[in-house]
Amino acid sequence: MKLSILVNEGPYQHQAADTAIQFTKAALEKGHEIMRVFFYHDGVNNGTRFGVPPQDDRNITEQWTALAKEHDLDLVVCIAAAQRRGILDENEAKRQGKDGDNIAEGFRISGLGQLIEAGIQSDRLVVFGD
């Protein structure tokens, strides 16, 4: 089955971020295709590489980056939600006149159209949030 994932909550704050990555892993192990993972609301905070959780805790962003590398996943952070919350890639930082970017490896910033496209083209869109 072709699946897409929507993550609506930030890492550590909410179980949804962990559940989304565990579901994605399980789906891939079962042989399903993940068309796209879209991050919205505080979910965009999963895409910052500046998070430094304690050493004995999991690093959710690094888990996504590793999974994306292994399975060539398309991790998309919503541009509008990201701008509000200070998640920037190099281009956006330049465009907005900010002094740095923080997007993690394996993530890209794009528009909400990517979420709708995922809804249209996937067999199922699975939403993780409150």
């Binding site: 794009s110 528009g111 083209q121």
Partner: peptide, 11 residues
């Protein structure tokens, strides 16, 4: 924006 570039396929 990405949705301006491509003709969207699908029902």
């Amino acid at each position: 924006e990405p949705w301006e570039d491509d003709e969207l396929e699908g029902p």
